[in-house]
Amino acid sequence: MADASEPQSLDEAPHILLVDDDQRIRSLIERFLRKEGYRVTVAESAGHARRKLEGLMFDALVLDVMMPGEDGFSLLTTLKADTPDMPVLMLTAMAEPGERIRGLELGADDYLAKPFEPRELSLRLTNMMRRRPEPARVVRFGRFRFDVRREELTADGDPVRLTDRERHLLKLFASRPGATIARHELVADEDLGDRTIDVQINRLRRKLEDDPGEPKYLQTMRGQGYRLLADPGES
């Protein structure tokens, strides 16, 4: 993964979910990370973070331990059960080593005690994401293969022509095979209206499906969004 300080497009920039109940700290960290080249989504509570995690993709999570209601440990436990490869850096104002040990035992990848230098946070995030396993390079579904890095689709070994928008949408789905991607995420990512997204999905289906009216691979999850149903064991 490229260093977050390197110039990169918005699509390539690592996407961070920042969860902290302190508005001042959220604003400070968000401003700094954006200057460092990250995309940042903020949440003020564990419940708010859960809603963000349902519909958006993130490269790492910055999570405060002590929050009103559900604390960071509880959210961390759920997150690591669902997405064990998600890098998590925990923030704490507590000095007790027992609390840091608890977070690490629950699966946190790193710890940073408040107060801290924002630059240290950025460097720790970069190091965590470098250690993260690379996503599948090739996703297979039926007679199709999609190379995520090269953004190339083939059918039985023959190249399939895609428009730039179709290629971008397919890369989103192939980066999370089997996961439902919410409609609002697709709309925001493509800066398009709901109806235009439907049109683009239908056009892509005509290239992927034997019967676009009964899609086998690019499926509609009613009331939620869409998912790409890939073959098991993609590499």
Rank of each mutant, 00 (worst) to 15 (best):
2 A>I: 14
3 D>K: 13
4 A>S: 14
13 A>I: 04
13 A>N: 06
16 I>K: 06
20 D>Q: 01
26 R>H: 00
27 S>V: 07
29 I>Q: 00
32 F>C: 02
34 R>G: 04
36 E>C: 12
42 V>Y: 00
43 A>E: 07
44 E>I: 03
45 S>F: 03
47 G>L: 13
48 H>Y: 03
51 R>W: 10
51 R>G: 00
52 K>G: 01
58 F>A: 02
60 A>D: 07
67 M>S: 08
67 M>P: 03
70 E>Y: 04
72 G>Y: 05
72 G>R: 00
76 L>G: 01
77 T>Y: 11
77 T>V: 04
78 T>N: 11
78 T>W: 15
85 D>P: 05
85 D>A: 15
91 L>H: 03
91 L>M: 08
93 A>D: 01
96 E>F: 05
102 R>V: 04
104 L>R: 09
104 L>F: 08
108 A>W: 04
117 E>G: 02
117 E>S: 10
119 R>V: 11
120 E>Y: 02
120 E>L: 14
121 L>G: 09
125 L>F: 07
128 M>K: 04
131 R>V: 01
133 P>K: 03
135 P>R: 04
139 V>G: 11
146 F>H: 08
149 R>I: 11
151 E>S: 14
155 A>I: 09
156 D>R: 12
156 D>S: 14
157 G>H: 06
158 D>M: 13
159 P>R: 08
160 V>H: 03
162 L>H: 05
162 L>V: 02
166 E>Q: 15
169 L>C: 05
170 L>P: 01
171 K>C: 11
172 L>A: 11
175 S>N: 11
176 R>L: 11
177 P>N: 11
177 P>K: 06
178 G>C: 08
179 A>E: 15
180 T>C: 14
183 R>V: 13
184 H>C: 10
186 L>D: 08
188 A>T: 13
190 E>D: 13
199 V>P: 02
200 Q>L: 15
213 G>A: 12
216 K>D: 12
218 L>P: 09
218 L>D: 11
219 Q>F: 01
220 T>S: 14
225 G>L: 06
227 R>K: 11
227 R>V: 05
